[in-house]
Design a protein around this nucleic acid. Structure first.
Lengths: 111, 111
DNA sequence: CTTTACAATCGTTAATCGACGATAAACGAA
DNA sequence: TTCGTTTATCGTCGATTAACGATTGTAAAG
């Protein structure tokens, strides 16, 4: 593979991209919203709430976990998921940083 | 193809996912930041600032344009890009909506 | 009318994603 | 131990992404 162009970007750019990529699918947005609504963590309940197969939900959860946005804890035969406190705090920080860097459209460009 | 599961999600979930997906690459983050910094719109200047080939930059610009985040205007032989006011306003709205829905880690889950 | 820049598109390649069904693994209950 | 429930993983498939070089298109400049 050797020397990805990817490495030429800022770490904060990369971190933000990882977060955004994890958010880049409606199912994962829905999962996060469900986990936030029921502040009690849900498990395979997610599967019944979502219009996708169990294995697909599991994959999305894995991606969210990899991105550090979600956390799962085994509880008997089932797994209890919840939003990863630290990870989501970081994500919030990066995202709101972007909203500051790219402010609301005031004057904007001359083109 | 026929009937994507994708269609089963909220439109706001889908819109947010489209935005997030567009932000899901460090090069595109970098492009947006560059366009914001120099409030004057840049063009192929982007190519010299970024560690990727001209054609690749062009592709990323296209994706950003498709997502409605960026806008390009032909100016002689060159093209002047800037942040799409309306599109970015919408994106901001959706993103900050998410930050409200998923608040900072206070109590969180019992697991 | 050429030449020259600049930017978009084409064509290709390897890699990743999204989805599914099927299977395996973990564990409590009978 | 065996069964049922729950979740993760495997294997597969088509579609998409990311990247590049090469080519094409467009418009000012000579």
């Amino acid at each position: 593979m050797a020397l990805h162009k990817r490495d030429q970007f800022t770490t904060s750019e990369q971190q933000l991209a990882v977060i955004a990529k994890a958010l880049g699918h409606p199912a994962r947005i829905a999962i996060l919203q469900l986990l936030a609504q029921r502040q009690s963590c849900v498990c395979g309940e997610l599967v019944t709430e979502l219009p996708i197969a169990q294995s697909t939900v599991s994959q999305h959860l894995k991606e969210l976990k990899t991105a550090g946005l979600v956390q799962g804890e085994v509880d008997g035969p089932r797994v209890c998921y919840c939003i990863d406190r630290a990870g989501w705090a970081r994500a919030r920080h990066l995202l709101s940083g972007l909203l500051v860097e790219l402010p609301a459209p005031t004057a904007a460009c001359a083109c």
